[in-house]
Structure formats: structure tokens, C-alpha cells
């Protein structure tokens, strides 16, 4: 099969820096206003109030979080918001040392999927863990939301600073 591999020309980063190869650069103007919609709009409004909410599916009876207008399993509209606790269980986590552009972080972040109490089993949200040493984090760990003070909240997922161990 060797003869059917094209001998592609490859470059090093230095080829660009030294001007050995011609290129163009372009930064697209890619700014967006993403509509939160009704379900997530309410989710954000309740975060501002210091509450987590889910939605109820009248067909399977599950309480889903993040909230949504329909149950993707039953394909029926959900029928109302349900208050949830701001505690939960770590389903999985990572200890992240890099930013999205591969720059190393001074202090690692601990992203986690957290199953929220009051929602149906397995209903997790993505958030960060704090006030805990990375090596002390365990799957199954019980955690509680640490909220920003009311005056600092803006109706965003970051109105919860992070989740910290319950004990």
C-alpha cells in the first residue's frame, strides 16, 4: 500500500516564523448572542436566586437537570419546574492543568460531573470543585454548592463558585 500514500509536504513552526512559507491569517468575527430559551432562562434566573431547579417529565416521571422543554427519552414536553437541593454526589472528576489553548494553569482546576440531590439518579451537571485538595477528591464524594453573595450573582452557572465537600 506504500505507493498509495502521497508524499505530503510538511512544515515546522519555524518555517512560518522564518518566512520560508507563505500564508495568510484571519480572525473571524464570531461573536454570538445565544438565546437561553425558556428552560435554561429559568435555570439561570433561579441560580441568581440561589436555587437549583430541574424539570419533571410527566411520562417517565424523572426529574431532569439541566432543565429542558422536553424529555429526550419520551419526546414529550416536560410539565413544570422542580426545586432541587444544592448538594450532590461526584460522578466523575478530573484535575486539569491546562487551559483550552494548552497554556499551563498555575493552579489546577477540578472539573466534575455532579449528580444533584432531588433530581433523578444519574442527573449530573458539569461544575468545578473547590476547598479540597486534588488528591483528596473521590468519585462518590458528597458535595455542596458554594454560592456567590446575592449581590454578585448575575444569572449564570458561575453564580455557584464551586462545590465543596460536605464534611
Amino acid at each position: 500500500m506504500k505507493e498509495f500514500v502521497y508524499d505530503t509536504v510538511y512544515l515546522s513552526e519555524e518555517d512560518f516564523e522564518a518566512g520560508r512559507v507563505l500564508y495568510e491569517t484571519w480572525k473571524p468575527v464570531a461573536r454570538y448572542a445565544w438565546d437561553a430559551g425558556i428552560a435554561i432562562g429559568r435555570y439561570l434566573a433561579e441560580l441568581k436566586n440561589g436555587r437549583l431547579v430541574g424539570v419533571h417529565c410527566p411520562s417517565c416521571g424523572r426529574i431532569l437537570v439541566p432543565p429542558r422543554m422536553f424529555c429526550q427519552d419520551c419526546f414529550v414536553p416536560t410539565d413544570g419546574f422542580v426545586p432541587l437541593q444544592d448538594t450532590g454526589t461526584v460522578i466523575t472528576f478530573s484535575i486539569c492543568h491546562i487551559r483550552w489553548d494548552m497554556v499551563r494553569l498555575e493552579h489546577p482546576l477540578i472539573p466534575a460531573v455532579i449528580a444533584i440531590d432531588g433530581a433523578s439518579p444519574g442527573m449530573g451537571i458539569l461544575h468545578l470543585l473547590g476547598e479540597v485538595a486534588p488528591q483528596a477528591v473521590r468519585i462518590g464524594m458528597r458535595v455542596r454548592a458554594v454560592w456567590k453573595p446575592p449581590e454578585e450573582r448575575e444569572g449564570a452557572i458561575t453564580d455557584i463558585r464551586y462545590f465543596k465537600p460536605l464534611e
Binding site: 473571524p28 461573536r31 454570538y32 448572542a33 430559551g37 429559568r42
Partner: peptide, 12 residues
């Protein structure tokens, strides 16, 4: 009840 979230896609 409605809200738009502003952001960008940080690439060039």
C-alpha cells in the same frame, strides 16, 4: 424569563 448569553469562538 428570556436571556441571551454572549460569547465568541476564540479561534483564528
Amino acid at each position: 424569563q428570556t436571556k441571551a448569553w454572549y460569547g465568541e469562538i476564540p479561534i483564528q
